[in-house]
């Protein structure tokens, strides 16, 4: 079943057409990767999809068939869209556990007034949220960091903490912006299994990643962007051998080389 449909998204910054008429669709349980050189417009595309930027006049975004083009970012989360950020966006002065608990807040039922007056439901809600968050951290191998202040944790852990926090919103579609950047080989390995695991649970995963080994291994389909436009799309093996893709990555000389190699 198609979960996320993005149609004809585009945006300009000044004279620069950062994303230009890009469309794609992702199904439940699928890992859909977006690759391309730095500055290709990948993060900007995420910002369009998640409502941070307005998709142009002809742009359309649907979640599970429902048109959500006009919704702001926090409302899209309610519809089942969650994301992580290329530049860490962590609640640094809260504990790792509290970070994930904030991710659970859409399922929390107490009102601001109940919270203010310390209604008995609040303590119950806190317990339920804490348990749910802990279970998620356990699943992502983060349980040992639960009580630590997030600001004191290493980069690789925070990258996974962002994923845990995003999963806490119980998304239908999860957008990951370079989750393996800055991670060592072991952490990347863990991430690899984690992403596959998330997809297997029925979530549509959209992945921006520079680690080609990771991308080629776990993606069902790959979209290649350059200069804001779609260059190629297809199964990893197809995209890997696409002459246009190779030249975009390696330059024209590289393409000639590759052609000769494929002979």
């Amino acid at each position: 079943m198609t979960i996320l449909e993005a149609e004809n998204l585009g945006i300009s910054f000044g004279g620069l057409r950062a994303v230009d008429g890009v469309s794609f669709a992702v199904a439940a349980g699928e890992v859909f990767s977006i690759i391309g050189p730095n500055g290709a417009g990948k993060t900007t595309l995420f910002n369009l999809v998640t409502g941070i930027y307005r998709a142009g006049r002809n742009g359309r975004i649907r979640i599970a068939g429902e048109d959500v083009t006009s919704l702001g970012p926090h409302l899209l989360v309610r519809r089942g869209m969650a994301r992580t950020f290329q530049n860490l966006q962590i609640f640094f002065r809260m504990t790792a556990l509290e970070n994930v608990m904030v991710g659970c807040h859409l399922s929390e039922k107490t009102s601001f007034l109940a919270d203010l007056f310390g209604w008995p439901t609040v303590a119950r809600q806190n317990r339920a949220t804490r348990e749910r968050a802990l279970a998620l951290m356990e699943r992502l191998g983060l349980a040992q960091y639960a009580r630590a202040e997030a600001g004191s944790l290493p980069y690789g852990v925070l990258k996974r903490l962002e994923i845990a926090r995003a999963l806490a919103t119980e998304p239908k579609v999860l957008l990951l912006d370079e989750p393996a950047a800055g991670c060592n080989a072991v952490e990347t390995e863990v991430l690899d299994r984690l992403i596959a695991d998330i997809a297997k649970s029925g979530v549509a995963v959209v992945l921006i990643e520079h680690d080609m080994k990771l991308v080629m291994k776990i993606s069902d389909r790959v979209l290649v962007l350059t200069h804001g436009r779609r260059l190629a799309e297809g199964a990893p093996a197809v995209v890997r051998n696409d002459a246009g893709v190779i030249s975009a990555y390696l330059g024209d000389a590289g393409a000639t080389e590759a052609n000769r190699a494929h002979g």
Binding site: T50, H74, A82, F85, Q89, V102, E162
Partner: peptide, 10 residues
């Protein structure tokens, strides 16, 4: 701490 992230979790 982060309005972007807070918005990002709804």
């Amino acid at each position: 701490d982060s309005e972007v992230a807070a918005t990002g979790v709804g």
